[in-house]
Design a protein around this nucleic acid. Sequence first.
DNA 1: CGGCTGCTTGAGCTCTATCAACCCCCGTGG
DNA 2: CCACGGGGGTTGATAGAGCTCAAGCAGCCG
Lengths: 211, 211
Amino acid sequence: MNNPNILGPLDILTSGQKESLKLKHLKKGDILYREGDQPHGLYFLQKGLLGLTMLSESGAESLVRIFPEQSFCGHRSLIAQEEYHASAVALKACEILFIEAQAANKLLLENNELLMFFSRCLARDLKIAESRFNDMIGKRAYQRVVDSIVFLKHKNSQFPWTRREIGEFCGVKMETVSRILSELEENGLIKKEGRSIKIIDEAKLLNSYSS
Amino acid sequence: MNNPNILGPLDILTSGQKESLKLKHLKKGDILYREGDQPHGLYFLQKGLLGLTMLSESGAESLVRIFPEQSFCGHRSLIAQEEYHASAVALKACEILFIEAQAANKLLLENNELLMFFSRCLARDLKIAESRFNDMIGKRAYQRVVDSIVFLKHKNSQFPWTRREIGEFCGVKMETVSRILSELEENGLIKKEGRSIKIIDEAKLLNSYSS
DNA sequence: CGGCTGCTTGAGCTCTATCAACCCCCGTGG
DNA sequence: CCACGGGGGTTGATAGAGCTCAAGCAGCCG
């Protein structure tokens, strides 16, 4: 859930006209919406994992936000009345509930509690985004990679995050992520098991950067 | 105004109990609120210029958001019910209207139109923050500096932005900003007048990066 | 088992930070 | 009005973090 303070925003949304609700299935790699599209409506991720990706001029892809299971998606564009500024991609197979834009807007305008729920999501995501920007300036690749593997593990502890995804999330090239992971393993802070990463001691890992 | 779509959010806020309204004056460099503080309430900047700054672990300061004249400030923390994640500093003398937290919250909960106004601000700022993060990954210092001088000029065309501020805004050290500005002047894209920067041709400037 | 995609590691290079010295505005006080 | 002090700005030299290019390896799926 995006926010535990308010119970049942999904209930409020789904209690309306059932004809405006649709169930969607995505395979890994499928695109839910594309950067530049007009907002479709509101999505609720029941099962799976979504990533919000942006392409930069130089062709580098970045992973700007992660949507874990049981969270909403697509609300920023809907509320801002702007086109999507990034694309939503299924990082694994997804099961998604869809509420069409007009119906969603109607509910947001009618139900203040519901709107407050989404406002709070936006406000918290804004803090995260600005903090991540600040980290890009103030932290070296080592610390950003460490922070990211912990953060991403918390978003979905089972998901086998790739080096590329970790890099796209914290602004570091895949090769550099790989080097840093090797260094972390040498120092006994993580364990590579096949391609996946096991964190030995989270607190120790987070405080491991010396220089 | 943060958003032109809805007329008079300030009117709605100020039409209530007058005793919850206060006028504040800040000198250049004064701090309106500090990173870590609990939200005070809602601020409206009538005159002046505010910057939202964050300190990183390494001691580097970054300028994460700019509040131009006639915009609101402090709403993110209030709505998120979180402490301030950054400090608001007066970049020049300011005249600020203050609405105490409890009164502001009451109005937000009662007036859906008002809440929608702030939601929209948050949604748009989230786009900006995430785009800026993406730019940190995909763009070189040259392009970020160019984008920033244009962006900052649009926020306040009269304000004499310093090299340091430009750097803190786009994640580049002051000396590097200075070097890039010299290069831009050599190529006839800007003109330095005393310490201030005059943009000769904005479109040409924005498209000047070759490599 | 073969192939593909993801991962690893090396060598070299480039961008930008860092350190340092100096200069130039601009506001202040005599 | 001028002198002066200090903060902002400029420019150079140097170093190093992380990118790029490249080659080879290892999981994992069909």
